[in-house]
């Protein structure tokens, strides 16, 4: 699994050129509105909009496939359970269990919304360098300390994954195979412990090196942001669409997902 979210940030597209501050803010509003939608047609519209956004950003589908897979795996039980457990009148019975269309419709709306949000999130963070996104978050009043720790953590993740793979190979070479038993759990506990000890010792060295280079609790960056009228017009388009979605959902002709397909 490739974890470097910004591996497509060098591609030239209208999303990559968008000022990250304005991008995060306006698409963030879009995400919040999508999470509050309650009817199937509007949730489907949101998913289509998200896919349009993805193609505008020239991100290939395999870039988002892991997130889409994860959402599907998490939501699959809900799609199965909801129609069978929805309170109220059952349409028919499956092996004696009541089946309600309301539950199925509700779960379909959930899946559409979840996919739309995941894809939009990829479009936000996949189109700027990770550090640039983080600095943009800081400019949007996200606490400095959180942003700094996010940057640290992001760097360490790759180091520790490499470390974990090395340890995994070593264990495999000595004939260890994971099984569903107590012994495996104990070994995994020791594995995590070893990973912790090694990582802490490594960080102590890094921290001393940072101190000796003058680290005083702040990262300095050469990244500067400039927003032009183009940035704001893109944001205006997104915000107008968001408001349309939201008000149609509140006042429009579409009933809640439980009540009807349309």
């Amino acid at each position: 699994m490739a974890l470097d979210i910004d591996r497509f940030s060098h591609v030239e597209s209208s999303l990559q050129r968008w000022d990250p501050r304005v991008k995060i803010f306006s698409l963030g509003l879009f995400i919040i509105a999508v999470s509050l939608l309650s009817s199937i047609p509007l949730a489907a519209t949101a998913l289509i909009l998200a896919i349009v956004l993805l193609s505008k950003a020239q991100l290939p589908f395999h870039f988002v496939s892991h997130g889409v897979q994860f959402v599907s795996i998490f939501l699959l039980p809900i799609i199965i359970i909801m129609p069978l457990t929805y309170p109220g009148e059952a349409a028919f019975h499956v092996l004696g269990i009541p089946f309600a269309w309301e539950g199925l419709r509700l779960s379909i709306a959930i899946v559409l919304k979840a996919l739309a949000i995941v894809i939009t999130a990829y479009a936000i963070f996949g189109t700027s360098r990770f550090d640039v996104s983080m600095i943009a978050l800081q400019r949007l009043k996200c606490p400095k300390i959180i942003v700094q720790m996010l940057l640290f953590t992001y760097r360490y993740i790759f180091v520790f994954i490499a470390e974990m793979k090395r340890m995994d190979t070593a264990m495999g070479a000595r004939g260890f195979v994971k099984k569903a038993n107590m012994y495996t759990l104990k070994v995994m506990g020791n594995f995590v412990g070893t990973l912790l000890v090694r990582s802490f010792e490594r960080t102590e060295r890094i921290y001393k090196a940072m101190l000796s280079k003058g680290y005083q609790g702040e990262f300095h960056t050469l990244v500067t942001f400039e927003s032009s009228s183009k940035d704001f017009s893109k944001a205006a388009i997104v915000i107008v669409i968001t408001l349309l979605l939201f008000t149609t959902d509140l006042l429009g002709p579409f009933p809640k997902a439980e009540l009807a397909w349309y």
């Binding site: 720790m149 640290f152 360490y156 912790l196 490594r202 960080t203 609790g217």
Partner: peptide, 9 residues
């Protein structure tokens, strides 16, 4: 700060 980041990662 670095310590918490290590544990998190």
């Amino acid at each position: 700060i670095p310590k918490i980041s290590v544990a998190t990662s």
